[in-house]
């Protein structure tokens, strides 16, 4: 659905985005991760045809960002970092305005607005000026605005930044719901936990592309994953036996929990459980450590920065 070919953007001689090449499949939730100033927003702006690449190109739905700007904007929805709503206008009017600019026919317009506002639990507030809404509600309206014309591709730039955890959950659930409708979602985020929960694949960017793949693939490629084994009781014997397993990097003990550094969880986790049970341990449950993507990300970005 999206294909970048050596996509590059320079501003006054400064390279903001340097030769990005990757693809995003239809119906995929794709995360773009990177530190501040890594070029995430610039990349999204090029893909939405808001700014032109300096070199290279990209294709959205088979159309070239250099040549087919209007058609690409018709098929895309964009949620920028700031909601940018018209605070003095009602929620309904904000959405109606954009629906008209996207050329949505009248009957469909009303239907779409109603559906989105109901999905986001804001139908009762449709006639209130959005300036009176909380940040979370405004963010929901901004998401509804980006969806009002039923885009095939949705670009979300930090969709849950600066909103409450409750509102963030509603937004995340909404994003997952869109995936079921085969909408391709391109998500820029600093929230690695969110990326891990939502994204099928992620790209890590720091002007240049550092890595691309599913969170588990990236984790595996660096061997940074950790498996948590919760036991009834941890014994020295169990720890030593697990440490000796092939594919185990290190073992930490935290209360009745083993934190096992593994290179390939799919392969090693069954061996860990077998070994623990074989040495008299009683397993309560086994899980991956949360924030595995965070470790992967930090390692990759540091490596990228050191060249």
């Amino acid at each position: 659905m999206i294909r970048l070919e050596r996509l590059t953007k320079e501003f006054d001689g400064l390279t903001a985005v340097d030769g990005l090449t990757f693809e995003v499949e239809e119906g995929e939730i794709f995360g773009l991760l990177g530190p501040n100033g890594a070029g995430k927003t610039t990349t999204v702006r090029m893909l939405c045809c808001l700014i032109k690449p300096t070199a290279g190109t990209a294709f959205v739905g088979g159309l070239d960002v250099r040549k087919d700007a209007i058609e690409i904007r018709e098929m895309c929805g964009l949620l920028p970092e700031a909601p940018g709503l018209y605070g003095e206008l009602s929620a309904y009017r904000n959405l109606e305005f954009y629906a008209k600019l996207y050329g949505v026919p009248r009957s469909k317009r009303e239907e779409n607005i109603k559906k989105l506002l109901k999905m986001l639990d804001l139908w009762d507030r449709k006639d209130d000026p959005v300036g009176t809404f909380s940040k979370g509600m405004q963010q929901k309206i901004a998401i509804a605005r980006s969806m009002v014309h039923e885009p095939r591709v949705l670009f979300l730039d930090e969709p849950t930044a600066a909103i409450s955890p409750e509102a963030a959950k509603v937004v995340r659930d909404f994003i997952l719901e869109l995936k079921h409708e085969r909408c391709t979602i391109f998500l820029c985020t600093h929230n690695l936990d969110e990326a891990e929960r939502l994204c099928d694949r992620v790209a890590i960017l720091n002007s240049r592309l550092i890595a691309v793949g599913s969170p588990s693939e990236l984790e595996k490629s660096l061997g940074l994953g950790k498996t948590e084994v919760h036991l009834e009781r941890v014994s020295e014997e169990i720890v030593r036996a697990v440490e000796k397993l092939d594919g185990v990097r290190d073992v930490e003990v935290s209360g009745n929990k083993l934190l096992v550094g593994v290179r390939d969880p799919d392969e090693v986790n069954p061996l860990i459980v077998e070994t623990v049970v074989g040495h008299g341990g009683r397993v309560r449950y086994v899980t991956r450590t949360p924030h595995a993507l965070e470790e992967t990300y930090l390692k990759l970005v540091r490596e990228g920065e050191s060249g």
Partner: peptide, 14 residues
């Protein structure tokens, strides 16, 4: 100032 131009610029208007 209110950052309302970006979503407007993302629409298929010339």
């Amino acid at each position: 100032v209110n950052r309302q131009l970006e979503p407007l610029l993302a629409t298929p208007t010339t």
